[in-house]
Design a protein around this nucleic acid. Structure first.
Length: 611
DNA sequence: ATAATGATGAGAGACCCA
DNA sequence: TGGGTCTCTCATCATTAT
């Protein structure tokens, strides 16, 4: 377990300027700000940064060109990266080498493997590179399985991963090029039928690159149809100019521009699943490009027109809808709007178990055959009472074998409604808070202790990010900010964004956090201390009181923000709300407009600072 | 005073079938 | 295409228990 930091090192400094009265600063160690001070921007284009660009698959020539082109305006790594992504977005500008690298990385091969394979086999012979990558993967797999036998780091995990069968290995060794490509594609997560069709269409002599290109094109076309009911770019571009006066009453949603949810909520792609996109189907509008990065989150299933309105207030960026069931054993359908690149994302390790039974092995023994669930529903803020589970047990104990269908149906209804799991014979229980922490990707006991009641703990967890999902989206920041980042965290909650960055091993030089709940702020401070963060944690209570002057002063003090992250309250949008599901203008959910206001203030100040 | 519990549906999308 | 059915949802409030 994480050791607690030495409390003697903790300094509590009340802010002495005229900032909000509820603002204070937490600095567990002497401040290390030199890396991000405004005067050291030039230093950011370090060899390390260039190396990270190389690792991402950009050629040195491309990087040199991007630095040269960007140098006139400013020298921030993000701007250079933006230029680099623009190169790779345009097939003309993209060198064949980086294109090949990106292809393989997108297929799920580790970057270091791809680079190693290309060093050994050049960048022309895709077949040879593929063979090399498959060999590396096999070696890794073997090592992993050996490690698993001696390294049991999950105390409640009593089953090991199965090894690949001899048959499978033989197949890989002896098969034709066509079969090899098919196997490789299936391994990468593509559907067999998609892969087979692509190979057939491209011809048996087609290269790996051509086949993957074909599948990606087909998937993008499919996704495009699913996501966009009516993409009217012209109208969207016009809206860009007359938007963003957040003090005025919000516009009525344009019912002609309803955003429909995709059937499979995989956003721009999730690990181990077909449909990974190399580029956004609709590019980020120019107005939203450039630093700082921002990341906004809210529930996917809102009243009609809400996401269209949210998007229209966030530079008309198309939302990315993702269900966290692709990252853990519980569903969590959420929409995300961000201006982050989507290439070269990676998962935090180790990935979570993907089913209830794997995540909670002890339940397997008691799971009846007539309960077919493998995933939990969305983790909410309330849990079932003991009286309900007792009632169910009494009902089930009347029968020796399987209960009658109507009883099964009623039990399943309650199981799905309350996310119950089997913990004994005829015995169901709601998830405890520790289990919810695990599913959501938080360290054990993240929300435990410190005087928080169980009820409030459930409430905080139910309102939180799913860390693995968010981390996947933020992962590409890691090579961009080798010296750490400055974060403005709005509606911080229990710190899902911070935990994601920490698990990505992205150093947080400064976190300015805004969170209304005392209990949640305590949780974040506790996390900050327990993980021995070296950066500054500065806390505010109320987004409404965080005015433009305060934001500007903070940015002057810390040299700006690299990331603005937050999910605004969903109370008035969530389906579970019987009383006040009134939409974005509701009492709580309307704080979304403060997110927009603050984001725009940060961007305005950032532009000013660049000048 | 605080914490736990029990009662309180509708809205939206997916799916099926005529 | 349209209607019926099934499914799921970062919740709130009054009451009761501690």
């Amino acid at each position: 377990m994480v050791e607690h930091g030495d409390s003697d090192d903790v300094n509590w400094n009340t802010d002495d300027d005229e900032l909000a009265i509820d603002n204070f600063q937490f600095s567990p160690s002497p401040v290390h700000m030199s890396a991000t001070s405004p005067n050291s921007i030039q230093n950011r284009i370090s060899d390390e940064t260039v190396a990270s660009f190389v690792e991402m698959g950009f050629s040195t020539q491309m990087i040199a060109r991007a630095i040269e082109e960007t140098a006139g305006a400013n020298m921030e790594p993000m701007m250079i990266l933006e230029t680099l992504f623009n190169y790779s977005a345009s097939t003309e500008a993209s060198s064949s080498k980086s294109k090949v690298i990106n292809h393989f990385i997108a297929m799920g091969f580790p970057e270091e493997h791809v680079i190693k394979a290309m060093q050994e086999h050049g960048d022309e012979d895709v077949g040879e590179i593929t063979n090399a990558l498959l060999t590396y993967a096999e070696v890794d797999k073997l090592r992993e399985s050996e490690d698993m036998n001696i390294n049991i780091n999950d105390d409640d995990d009593d089953n090991l991963y199965s090894l690949s069968s001899d048959d499978e290995e033989d197949e890989l060794n002896n098969s034709s090029n066509e079969d090899r490509i098919l196997q490789a594609l299936i391994k990468m997560g593509y559907l067999r039928e998609d892969a087979a069709i692509a190979i057939e269409r491209c011809g048996e002599d087609a290269s790996m690159e051509e086949v993957v290109d074909f599948i990606c094109a087909a998937q993008m076309a499919r996704q495009f149809d699913e996501i966009y009911a009516e993409p009217d770019k012209k109208e969207l571009m016009n809206n860009n100019k007359k938007r963003r006066t957040y003090t005025e009453t919000p516009r009525k949603p344009n019912t002609d521009q309803l955003i429909s949810l995709p059937k499979e909520m995989i956003g721009f792609g999730v690990p181990n699943h077909p449909g990974l996109m190399m580029h956004r189907p609709v590019p980020i509008p120019d107005i939203a490009r450039g630093p700082p990065f921002f990341y906004y989150e809210n529930v996917a299933m809102t009243p009609k027109g809400v996401w269209a309105k949210i998007s229209s207030h966030l530079y008309d960026i198309v939302p990315e809808f993702v269900d966290s069931k692709h990252f853990c054993a519980a569903a969590r359908k959420r929409g995300y709007i961000h201006n982050l690149p989507i290439q070269n994302r990676f998962q935090i390790q180790p990935p979570q178990h993907n089913t209830i039974q794997e995540a909670f092995p002890l339940t397997k023994r008691w799971w009846p055959s007539w309960d077919g669930r493998t995933k939990l529903n969305c983790l909410l803020t309330c849990i079932a009472s003991s009286r309900l589970t007792e009632k169910i047990r009494e009902a089930l104990e009347r029968y020796d074998g399987e209960p009658p269908l109507d009883v099964q149906k009623w039990v399943m209804y309650e199981c799905k409604k309350w996310n119950l799991v089997w913990v004994g014979k005829n015995k169901l229980a709601p998830l405890d808070a520790d289990e919810m922490e695990k599913l959501l990707g938080f360290p054990r006991d993240h929300t435990r202790g410190g005087g928080i009641s169980t009820t409030d703990r459930y409430k905080s967890l139910g309102n939180s990010f799913q860390v693995d999902t968010v981390a996947y989206h933020l992962s590409l920041l890691k090579p961009l900010f080798p010296n750490g980042i400055n974060v403005l965290s709005l509606f911080t909650g229990i710190g899902g964004g911070e935990v994601a960055l920490h698990r990505l091993q992205i150093k947080m030089n400064v976190v300015v956090s805004v969170e209304i709940s005392d209990a949640n702020r305590n949780i974040l401070r506790s996390f900050w201390e327990q993980t021995n963060q070296k950066g500054i944690l500065r806390e505010f209570k109320d987004v409404q009181k965080l005015d433009d002057n305060t934001i500007e002063r903070l940015m002057d003090e810390y040299g700006g923000f690299d990331l603005v992250i937050g999910g605004s309250p969903c109370n008035n949008l969530a389906g579970g709300n019987r009383h006040h599901r009134v939409g974005l203008e509701g009492e709580h959910s309307s704080l979304f407009f403060d997110y927009c206001r603050i984001l725009e203030a940060v961007r305005r100040k950032a532009r000013h600072m660049r000048r």
